[in-house]
Design a protein around this nucleic acid. Structure first.
Length: 413
RNA sequence: GCGGGUGUCGCCAAGUGGUUAAGGCCUCGGAUUGUGGUUCCGAUAUUCGUGGGUUCGACCCCCAUCACCCGCCCCA
């Protein structure tokens, strides 16, 4: 036998028995996001590499070491590692800046990151998300968060933790970064290697280090003072306060997490995450925030925006699986031509129908029917002559004989 | 990139140095040649991820290699 070819590391087949879960996620997304006026958009899976290095930020790990990039006709092309940059590109390119604000878009689809796979993390994974353009007021942030929460509720996920924080604007955030670096400077040598790295690259990330020795340093009074200082400027603070007001009013339960920092460069002001404690260490199902400078950064008119993305695999692992659909009827007959004709008749009437293509024994066909269908349609010599069909309810064993023309009316489907 | 774990049939597994590698599920066939889902009988791994080595003898011990899983980093 020839050698078996296997799926790539970090990729997975979505098999027939789980496809209905994916369809559910997509259907609910359409239902819920439509209520908020979001329209679905589908952008290409490949984009120019520059879109991500400029959009997501080339200091991020995602762009730095996790992209699937290849050259074609002298252009560098990348499999999208996330979809905000792509949606923003499309927004600009298709002149959506001229559409009346807000422009609300949602999407779902595969993303690609070259990482070591583990629980809740694959190299090809799927995200569903929304992006809203053109509103700087915190109502937009609140509506986006509400859409996320209600989507999760629609999936039966009620008990997830919503965490929010404000990163401020670039100006006040930089001030905070500098203060933080300043106060930690004396302890630099005591930090773990990861933290030393973060100290330079992204000081905000320092704060959620899990190493005890680092935690101890962060607990020192002078460090705590900086962490807890309301570094954000008046405008940012007002935005944040208003957001919380809306969330309270809408009954969204959230916790404020000063240590919540998102990894992508483009976020400012509002950031949020929704977490579950049933997911192992990759516990975030949803991450998002405001990115007011991204549209301009990618060459569009200065446009405020806010959005989120959810990991669909992570969602699915939290949802209780649905029973697969049963066939409406299975035709049991030793007359394949007549069985085939009847099957087509019934299919045209909207039923899901199968019959035995291999013409096996009657009892085998019956067995197959009972395992896969609600009704067995029995088509023997008598029935064919009288233009009838015997219908057996496989749950209760009751059987009737009916005219072919009206037989489906006898069903209670 | 770093750390830990696991690989025996399509799936779940027992076996941890001694002739033919348990068992269960699924699949297929038969009992039952026009009435199932229950039951009963039968079939399906010359081979234990792969390649070497040790041994009279290896699924079992050693080395290497590959694959997958879990954790760190990072993220959804």
């Amino acid at each position: 036998m020839a050698e078996i070819i296997k799926v790539l590391k970090g990729t997975k087949d979505i098999l027939p028995q789980e496809v209905n879960m994916w369809q559910l996620l997509e259907k609910k997304a359409d239902q819920v996001f439509s209520k908020y006026g979001f329209k679905e958009i589908r952008t290409p899976i490949i984009e120019y590499t520059e879109l991500f290095s400029r959009g997501v930020g080339d200091t991020t790990d995602i762009v730095n070491k996790e992209m699937y990039t290849f050259e074609k006709s002298d252009r560098s092309i990348t499999l999208r590692p996330e979809n905000t940059a792509g949606v923003v590109r499309s927004y600009i390119e298709n002149g959506m800046t001229r559409l009346p604000a807000p422009v609300k878009l949602w999407y779902h689809g595969p993303m690609f990151r070259y990482e070591r796979p583990q629980a809740g993390r694959q190299r090809q994974f799927h995200q569903v998300g929304v992006e809203m353009f053109g509103v700087k007021q915190p109502t937009a942030d609140a509506e986006v968060i509400l859409a996320a929460v209600n989507y999760l509720k629609a999936l039966g996920l009620n008990d997830l933790d919503v965490e929010i924080n404000s990163l401020g604007c670039p100006k006040c955030r930089n001030e905070f970064k500098n203060n933080l670096k300043e106060v930690l400077k004396p302890y630099f040598d005591e930090l773990c290697d990861d933290c030393k790295n973060r100290y330079e690259k992204n000081p905000l990330r320092l704060l959620d280090c899990k190493i005890e020795s680092c935690k101890k340093i962060f607990e020192k009074p002078e460090v705590q003072e900086v962490i807890n200082s309301d570094f954000i400027c008046d405008e940012c603070a007002e935005h944040y306060t208003e957001l919380k007001l809306y969330l309270n009013k809408m009954g969204v339960h959230y916790t404020e997490n000063k240590l919540l920092v998102r990894g992508l460069d483009y976020y400012n002001r509002t950031v949020f995450e929704i977490k579950s404690n049933n997911l192992g260490s990759q516990n975030a199902v949803c991450g998002g925030g405001r990115y007011d400078s991204l549209v301009a950064q990618l060459g569009g008119e200065d446009t405020p925006a806010v959005g989120f993305a959810m990991g669909m695999e992570r969602l699915i692992s939290l949802i209780t699986p649905k029973e697969p659909k049963r066939l409406d009827c299975y035709i049991v007959s030793n007359f394949p031509v007549d069985a085939f004709v009847l099957a087509e008749e019934l299919r045209h009437q909207g039923l899901n129908v199968e019959f035995d293509l291999a013409n096996r024994k009657f009892t085998k066909q019956m067995e197959k029917a009972s395992k896969t269908a609600k009704y067995a349609f029995i088509l023997g010599e008598d029935e064919i002559l009288k233009h009838q069909v015997s219908i057996k309810n496989l749950d209760n064993g009751k059987q009737i004989t009916a005219d072919r023309a009206s037989c489906t009316k006898m069903l209670d489907l």
